[in-house]
Write a protein that binds this DNA or RNA. Structure first.
Lengths: 224, 224
DNA sequence: GCATGTGAATAGATTCACAGCG
DNA sequence: CGCTGTGAATCTATTCACATGC
């Protein structure tokens, strides 16, 4: 059993969206049921983990059969809060901000971009797709108008904290941070960080281990 | 003690780039030494974790004083394999691929974009910054020419696996995957995945928990 | 019979707390 | 004396293995 207002482990929460996407594909292909074994294979994890993860949502499987794809999809969507759209506001309309604003993947998956904001007045008024860039100081009004609950920070590192403060002050409680800086926020605010250079550096570590080729540093003294 | 060809925990490896960035800033500000306490504060973690993490690199601190910023920076860069550049090849020159190609953060941090590749012949020949888009089938030649060791997949989900296979066949052993799909690769290949929709869905989960506002689903039956 | 759901076992990561050393 | 480095304790996550129930 074990269900209701349960506590779902962080590691499980981070995997649910992966299962969700697979279930969505399966539903499109009209696959009626799926076993933990097969779902595990598609998700690149092991079957015991899938079962343990899903058990945190409730007992939605049928012994001897597997999980009903549509039903599990529905329950999981509900659990993740995806039964309605979550408008997002993007702060920082540089290179990355532009790309994110045009990225179909957001609105396609229930996160429509409701507003674009920048601190630079020379960018205010600029048209990006259907949206007009507005000024950072309008955030409270924008959040009130659009009901945006999630803020995306796509500014340079230096502006990150200031923007986070502004988002929090405007009532935003969920932040996706692309700025390569550590944010300090109140306890009731969630932050997820995406740092592309960090990802590459992690790859570099394992790559270097593999090649082992302790080759002489070709840039001694210019560490960054 | 404990150093040499040590085994560094994954969780630690993932944090080293964060410390590195902070150390780089400190070095720029000419800060000579830093305590685990202060570094922890800047990195948003606790001091014991910093000390444990750094101890995996070796004993680079001085009791009663702290860590020498320049020295630690150097040792950490070396450990991460960042004493030389790692050219990267970006596969998929759509919206995201373009943004990544123009993103200064890569080359600034030692990951110059050496080539752009697409499977769509109508995009081949297109000029993006200083680079000309080349065809996917040229990958082996491109990897040989540029020495690219890291591949970045910025294609739609459907093409992800095919591109990964092509990268692996061309000799690439490190992949950063932006395509929202699970990749299957040989054991000696590292993959890091960045999925923006997944990040937003994780935020959605906690956001929903917070507001608790079990409001009626406004899109029943259209789960995605 | 077969695949789920879950206690128990194991592995991994974090935190504590303090000995050891500059 | 102050801060590192690290065993030991704790907490979290993963995996095993099997009883349970369709």
């Amino acid at each position: 059993m074990e269900q209701g207002g349960r506590r779902i482990p962080e590691a499980t929460v981070a995997r649910l969206p992966v299962y969700l996407r697979i279930l969505y594909d399966l539903a499109e292909q009209r696959v009626p049921t799926i076993s933990s074994e097969r779902l595990a294979e598609l998700a690149g994890v092991n079957a015991a983990k899938v079962r343990k993860d899903l058990s945190h949502l409730g007992s939605y499987g049928t012994r001897g059969v597997g999980y009903d794809v549509e039903y599990l999809l529905f329950e999981m969507s509900r659990e993740l809060g995806l039964t309605h759209d979550w408008p997002v506001v993007i702060v920082g309309v540089g290179n990355l901000g532009h790309a994110l604003a045009n990225y179909r993947g957001f609105s396609d998956r229930g996160f429509p971009v409701a507003a674009l904001v920048d601190a630079d007045r020379s960018k205010v008024g600029e048209q990006v797709g259907a949206l007009t860039v507005r000024h950072l100081e309008d955030l409270p009004a924008i959040v009130a108008e659009t009901g945006a609950a999630i803020g995306i920070i796509a500014t340079p590192a230096a502006a990150g904290q200031e923007v986070a403060d502004a988002l929090v002050a405007a009532g935003v409680r969920s932040i996706l941070n692309f700025a390569p800086t550590v944010l300090t926020v109140p306890d009731d605010v969630s932050v997820r960080k995406v740092d592309l250079a960090v990802e590459l550096q992690i790859l570099s570590f394992y790559q270097q281990r593999r090649t082992g080729a302790r080759r002489p540093p070709d840039r001694l003294g210019t560490t960054r």
